[in-house]
Every structure is written in C-alpha cells, then in structure tokens.
C-alpha cells in the first residue's frame, strides 16, 4: 500500500512534469524497470486517449472542409479556463461522493457545450466567409483565430479570481484542482491504474463509440459523409451544406471540450499556452492516423501518447517534443497518407 501510494505520487509528479515541460525523472529507484515501462505505458495510453479525442475534432473538420484548424488546440485551452472558472464558481473542488460525480458530469457537459458553441462561432466568423476562397486563405484565417484565442486565454488568465491559485501573472500556469484524486483505482499485477486513468477511459471510450454511431447510422452522420465526399452533390440532394459543416464544427469542438476537462484533471495544470501543445499533439496524431480518418485519429493519438510517455520516461522530457515532431516529419516523408489513410483521393 505504501509502495502504491509512492507510485501514485510519482504518477502525479510525472503528470505535472509533463504539463510544465520540466525534466521528468526516470530512474528514481522506487520502481523496477519493467514497472516503469508498464506505468509509463498506462500514462501514455491515458494521455493518448485524450489526444485522440482532440484529434477527432481536427480530423472531422479536415474531412469536411479540408482545413487544418490550427485554432483547435487553443479552443481546448479556453475550454480549460472555462472549466477552471466553473470549478471555482460552483465550488466543485472537494465535493465528494454522488454530489462530486454529478458536478463532474455537469462540468464535462458544460465545457463541451462551451467549446462546441465556440468552435461553431469560429467557423461562422472566420471560415465560412472564406468558403470559396483558396485553401491557403482559410489556413491563414485559422492561424489568426488561434492567435485571437491565445490572447483571450491570456486575458482570462489575468482575471483577478481566487480560484486561479497559480499566481497573479496572467501568463502563469494555474493549478487545476484534482477533482478526481490521483489515487490508485486498482492494480494489474504491479501496474497501478489510477482513478484519473479510469476517468479518461470512462469519458473517452463512450464518446468515441457514440461518435461512431452518429457518423455511421444517423441522418446527420450520413449527411456529414456526403458533404465531405461531394459538397455540390450534397447540395443537389437538398442538404444544407453550411448547416452540416456547422454541426461538424460543433461536435468536434464539443469533443475537444470533454477532452480538455479530462486533460486538466489528469495533468492538474492549465495555462494560456497549453493549447499549442494539445493542438500540435492532436494534429500529429491526426496526420499519423491519416487525416480525415476517424479510427486513424484514435490510433494516432494512442501512438503519440505512448511515444511521449516513453520519451519522458526513458530519454528526457526536454527531448520529447523533438522526438514527436521528428515522428511527424518521418510520417510526412514516408507515409504522407498516414497509417490508415487512403493511398489516393478518390476522383468521382
């Protein structure tokens, strides 16, 4: 039990180290090497599932409007500030038991709605007016939207709120309360699965299943695929293409909202610059899996999560970004269509 607690502490420290890009310590001596590996694997898979959920938002938007939505990670960052503010406003911290669970569910739903609505609005204001313009104009607009969101985050972080325990500076990282305490939930052999790990699974897996159902079987899902494959033909079927695109942005944003709450609880830190990291990881995951491909985004997310964790654990955390971006370059050179992407785009 003592050892478990020590490992859990280490888990929390590792999590913080990742968030702050501080050097992680791999050879603490507390855990044996195979345990370190397994523990890093669990952490990597959990972070990977979060990255995957964000990557789905990237890949859905790309699939339907062929836009790399560079504002997506920053959207998640604002979602984290929204969640942090809500936690303070409704005193969700420390409310255990059924009330705590209900509060957590409400927080997830509210943040998802916030991010969904925000993503819908960004599309409406920054992308939709450029629908017939070149893809490059759209991309530049996405980068602009990203800057706007980052500055909104900086502004939000500077608000004088007691809940932001991270100091008075707007740019300082804020501590996100451990709504789900980083305690062990259960162990598999010597590997500890923490309660935040369980939270990650409990949120991401049902959402991915629900999204799969939506895309495959509902009228909206089929319309989304139809618009992605041939917007003109979709128009000629009586599909309001812009409405379907708007719905796609909302759903992608909402998934990012769910992801950002789980991310914040898991990593216990939020800051205005976190969106860059989240967005880049998700972007690389989406490209790795094959951009526009939903299962690919999940696979890519898991790979990136595990690669990050292993790099943190066995190399050094400061090398992790270089390794992940190196991976991106390798994909772009050797398999630009990604692991699950189609080799060629179909010509209709």
């Amino acid at each position: 039990m003592l050892r478990a607690a020590a490992a859990a502490d280490q888990l929390a420290i590792l999590a913080l180290a990742r968030a702050d890009s501080l050097p992680a310590f791999a050879s603490d001596g507390v855990l044996s090497s195979s345990e370190v590996f397994s523990q890093q694997l669990v952490t990597g898979l959990s972070n990977g599932m979060i990255i995957a959920l964000i990557a789905i938002g990237y890949t859905m938007v790309y699939g339907i409007v062929e836009l790399i939505n560079f504002a997506h990670g920053d959207l998640c960052m604002l979602g984290a500030f929204f969640a942090l503010t809500a936690v303070g406003a409704f005193a969700l911290e420390g409310a255990g038991g059924a009330g705590g669970t209900a509060g957590l569910v409400a927080l997830l739903l509210a943040t998802a709605a916030f991010c969904g609505a925000l993503n819908w609005s960004i599309n409406r204001l920054a992308y939709r007016p450029l629908r017939s313009a070149s893809k490059l104009s759209l991309l530049v607009s996405a980068i602009g939207a990203s800057f706007v969101l980052v500055n909104l985050g900086l502004f939000w972080g500077g608000l004088p709120m007691e809940v932001f325990a991270g100091g008075t500076s707007a740019a300082a990282p804020k501590a996100f309360p451990a709504l789900v305490e980083p305690k062990p939930a259960f162990t598999v052999g010597d590997v500890i699965v923490s309660r935040p790990d369980v939270l990650v699974l409990a949120v991401t897996v049902p959402l991915m299943l629900a999204l799969t159902w939506l895309v495959r079987f509902t009228k909206l899902g089929k319309a989304m695929r139809a618009v992605a494959q041939n917007p003109t033909a979709a128009s000629l079927m009586g599909i309001d293409v812009e409405r379907v695109i708007g719905a796609t942005f909302f759903i992608g944003g909402a998934l990012g909202g769910f992801a950002t709450v789980v991310y914040s609880i898991y990593n216990q830190t939020v800051g205005f610059q976190m969106g860059y990291r989240m967005g880049m990881d998700a972007f690389i995951a989406a490209v790795l899996g094959g951009i526009g491909n939903l299962p690919g985004a999940v696979l890519g997310g898991l790979v990136i999560g595990v690669v990050r964790a292993m790099s943190d654990g066995y190399v050094e955390a400061r090398w992790t970004n270089a390794i992940v971006f190196g991976l991106l370059i390798l994909i772009l050179v050797f398999r630009p269509s990604g692991l699950l992407g189609a080799k060629l785009r179909e010509k209709v």
């Binding site: 009228k219 695929r225 494959q229 979709a234 179909e346 209709v348």
Partner: peptide
C-alpha cells in the same frame, strides 16, 4: 458526371 457519393453504400446514396 453522376456525382454519386463514392464512399457511401448504394443504399445510403439513395437515402441521401
């Protein structure tokens, strides 16, 4: 040029 949806099934095309 027909513009059918290539990655929807025939039935899904009709549903659209």
């Amino acid at each position: 040029g027909r513009r059918i949806f290539p990655r929807l099934t025939v039935r899904e095309n009709l549903e659209m």
